[in-house]
């Protein structure tokens, strides 16, 4: 039984090509080519959609403008509830782009049959499938909330480390590391796990059985994008909030 499982998992993992990358060498730097290819696709989708939506803005919206306005209102609500009515406006682009980029990445991984496109090494998948992407996004979030706190309160922002009592200083400092860590690993783990489960199921039972898992994957992907954006907004809002 365990033998069977071992050989099975070895075979599937081998065929899924987990952890293999198509390396690009640019100026002595190593890049994951497959991640950039799909991320360019995602960026192109977002830029084209927003450009088309804002080409001729109507007072009574219809079609794509209506759809994108729905998205924008959703993002604004998200930022407003997390950051607060007074401060949320300058942060809408950052939080909104986090949501849109992660959402479109995740759904492109679930909906676009990337694996049919042959590349020299590894395989195309959602950009959020790569730890570099998720860590980049979560580090940007960390920078963003530090910037938000310092620009709002100056150096007294750092006073929150000894509040409510100096005993919590180590925990408060630890928080600055756990926040990006949990953000990046939550997203990376969920998307990778979803694609692995779908991949394994497709490998084992190619017909119909993977469909419910794929639908569940769409759901998880959307939820993960929402969670990432909500948490980023909550961190930014928390940094600007008065602790006194």
């Amino acid at each position: 039984m365990s033998n069977l499982f071992n050989s099975l998992s070895a075979a599937t993992l081998a065929s899924l090509e987990v952890g293999q990358h198509w390396y690009w060498e640019i100026g002595g730097l190593k890049l994951h080519g497959q991640v950039f290819l799909t991320s360019w696709f995602v960026i192109a989708v977002l830029v084209v959609a927003s450009t088309l939506a804002t080409q001729s803005i109507q007072r009574v919206p219809s079609g794509l403008q209506n759809f994108m306005e729905f998205g924008l209102e959703f993002i604004r609500d998200l930022a407003k509830t997390q950051i607060g009515e007074k401060e949320y406006r300058p942060w809408v682009p950052f939080v909104g782009t986090l949501f849109l980029f992660i959402f479109v990445s995740n759904w492109s991984g679930a909906l676009v049959p990337w694996k049919l496109i042959e590349i020299p090494a590894g395989e195309l998948a959602a950009p959020t499938n790569d730890i570099n992407t998720t860590v980049a996004l979560s580090l940007l979030t960390s920078l963003a909330y530090f910037y938000a706190g310092i620009s709002k309160k100056g150096l007294s922002y750092f006073a929150h480390y000894v509040e409510p009592t100096p005993i919590l200083l180590p925990i408060n400092i630890l928080e600055d590391f756990t926040k990006p860590l949990s953000l990046s690993f939550r997203l990376f783990g969920n998307i990778l796990a979803d694609e692995l489960v779908v991949g394994v199921l497709v490998f084992l039972v190619p017909l119909f059985v993977p469909l419910p898992v794929m639908v569940l994957g769409l759901f998880t992907s959307a939820i993960q994008a929402l969670i990432f954006a909500t948490l980023a907004a909550a961190y930014i809002g928390g940094a600007m909030e008065g602790h006194h």
Partner: peptide, 30 residues
């Protein structure tokens, strides 16, 4: 899986560029 390299900073830069592009084409006008 945990192969960190220049993908990380470049992705961050790319993301910031996307933020500015979308700010100009999406968030501001809409």
């Amino acid at each position: 899986l945990f192969d960190f390299d220049a993908t990380l900073p470049l992705m961050a830069v790319q993301f910031l560029i996307l933020v500015t592009i979308l700010n100009a084409t999406f968030y501001k006008p809409l």
